[in-house]
Computed example of a mutant assay.
Amino acid sequence: MEFRPCIDLHDGKVKQIVGSTLGYQDKSVVENFISDYDAAYYAEMFKKDGLTGGHVIMLGTGNEEAAFLALKTYPNGLQIGGGITDENAKKYIDAGATHIIVTSFIFHDGKLDMERLEKLVQKVGKEHIVIDLSCRKRDGKWFVVTDKWTKFSDFEVNEASISEIEQYCDELLIHAVDVEGKRSGMQEELVQDLALWTSIPTTYAGGVRSLEDLQKFNNLSKGRLHVTIGSALDIFGGDLSYRKVVSFCETK
């Protein structure tokens, strides 16, 4: 199990927000934390601690400058997502990102667009692609949600679909949308399912809030999944020690 750190960017600042509140014109974005430090500060921290596979997520427009600053600070140490397409993917790889992360570009109109996915593979190679299968449960099944997590797709996340989509990427990133950013505990069933279904490096995000949760996560996933933690960490305004998380994961 690896700890994968994150740098979430919103309006050019490092923030922790409740992701499921994005994308609605009639609702305010719920912000858990706004940092006094820039993206380079966190990138340098993760670099010093030897953490790889962390993700920089651009939540909306106005975040490119901050994102490029993070990539420049920690070249070949971070992944990047948010508004990635086949047209702009290569510039982020060229700027130092190890991978680009995609959801809405390849899932649109409620369906997986294989033509777009294949174009992306042609542009940067599957070895540089992380597919984000962030999902919600509906009728007892997991479905990918897109457009800032406001719309259900018809893509069911299960063993068969994961086996197919793994052929087009190097890693998977999966947010448990209903608990992400809420510090309310992980979706244990999803963790168990993903540990059984995935065969490539897969990072789970959502709800982990304590060292006890981390231990439970490791037990449920049998060490097969990586984990990211945002709002719960003390470096992002929470109560969970970032330093203790790094130390814990180094022993697993």
Results as ranks from 00 to 15, higher is better:
residue 3 F to D: 06
residue 3 F to V: 08
residue 6 C to D: 07
residue 17 I to W: 13
residue 21 T to Y: 05
residue 22 L to D: 04
residue 26 D to E: 13
residue 27 K to T: 15
residue 28 S to A: 15
residue 31 E to V: 15
residue 33 F to R: 03
residue 34 I to V: 12
residue 34 I to C: 10
residue 35 S to G: 04
residue 40 A to V: 10
residue 41 Y to R: 08
residue 44 E to D: 14
residue 52 T to P: 04
residue 55 H to T: 12
residue 58 M to E: 13
residue 68 F to E: 04
residue 70 A to S: 11
residue 70 A to Y: 10
residue 74 Y to P: 09
residue 80 I to C: 06
residue 80 I to W: 03
residue 83 G to L: 05
residue 86 D to V: 05
residue 89 A to R: 15
residue 92 Y to H: 00
residue 98 T to E: 06
residue 108 H to S: 15
residue 110 G to E: 04
residue 112 L to F: 12
residue 121 V to P: 06
residue 125 G to A: 08
residue 126 K to Y: 01
residue 128 H to D: 07
residue 132 D to M: 02
residue 134 S to M: 00
residue 134 S to I: 00
residue 141 K to T: 01
residue 142 W to G: 00
residue 143 F to S: 00
residue 150 T to H: 12
residue 151 K to Y: 04
residue 151 K to A: 14
residue 153 S to D: 04
residue 155 F to T: 03
residue 156 E to Q: 14
residue 159 E to F: 09
residue 169 C to P: 09
residue 175 H to A: 08
residue 177 V to G: 00
residue 180 E to K: 09
residue 182 K to A: 05
residue 184 S to L: 11
residue 189 E to T: 01
residue 192 Q to E: 12
residue 194 L to Q: 02
residue 204 Y to W: 01
residue 204 Y to V: 01
residue 205 A to I: 03
residue 205 A to G: 14
residue 206 G to T: 01
residue 207 G to V: 03
residue 212 E to N: 12
residue 217 F to G: 10
residue 218 N to D: 14
residue 222 K to I: 09
residue 233 L to E: 06
residue 236 F to D: 01
residue 238 G to I: 03
residue 241 S to P: 03
residue 243 R to L: 10
residue 245 V to S: 13
residue 251 T to Y: 06
